[in-house]
Amino acid sequence: MSQTTTGAHPDATSAPSDQALVHAVNVTKAFHGTEVLKGIDMDVHRGEVVVLCGPSGSGKTTFLRCINQLETIDGGRIFVDGDLMGYEDRGGTLHRLPDKRIAAQRRDIGMCFQRFNLFPHKTVLANIIEAPRQVKGTSRREAEAKAHELLEQVGLGDKPSAYPAQLSGGQQQRVAIARALAMDPKLMLFDEPTSALDPELVGEVLKVMRDLAKGGMTMIVVTHEMGFAREVADRVVFIDGGVVIEHGPPNQCLLNPQHPRTRAFLSRMRQEEAAHAEAVVATVTGKASALEAVAAPDDGAAPEEAAGRPPSA
């Protein structure tokens, strides 16, 4: 049984009249007969940061990929900014959109992947200007100026001519974020952006994401970084077994969970986080340059000021 986030919609199959940027209703999806999503409802409002968490295999990544149509859905509807994703509703009959129209729908939705997926044959700069040049037809000068600006923003102003393979994982993921931002997205999707990173590189990526959230970007983040969720998220949505189990502001959902499955998951995460912290200390102290490095992971985890943004929704 899934919970609706904003109550029942009178007419669930049409675009909502309120301000929700992402409006998902009763989304279902099966892979080879196995139901992965069993009716997910979710509204994400403009400027909101939503963290999706839950055990692996719960369907959170699949749901994220459904939003920009990297996966097709079997049932329900997903609207982004009022647009029905992947289909056109002509007088009550759904028509699948051709690939080009779907590509156009994806323009305004940025995505960062667990494995970065930078284009390895292109330099950092070429990676960032590729989509604006090819999709939007931006002039080279304009695209490059914007790319340099974005590289400064993610702290890589000195790396425009490097190839992805010459960068660390954390740097690659920051380039990937800049690449997505180059399209001026109104929504950013993050699919476990730090899971492939060494512990000491997680902080630099989370910092960029935190700045982005502060700048008012609407973000949906699948992550296991509970520290990030506590500090940055407006709302945490806990998914398990393909349904939304629980959702709410982070200090309610993470500190005082109601559902037993949420509690079990969170206590497991706390153990992992402790082990993780130990690993960071081990890596850092294992290095000669211990003193400088200690500061970085620190600023990724601790929720010193819990009142980063007021809990909404």
Partner: peptide, 20 residues
């Protein structure tokens, strides 16, 4: 993942094939 990254950036399939 390369095709997915290009798709997520809004590149149509033909261009994804040719450029990426």
């Amino acid at each position: 993942g390369q095709a997915e990254a290009a798709q997520a950036l809004g590149m149509p399939p033909g261009r994804t094939m040719r450029r990426i």
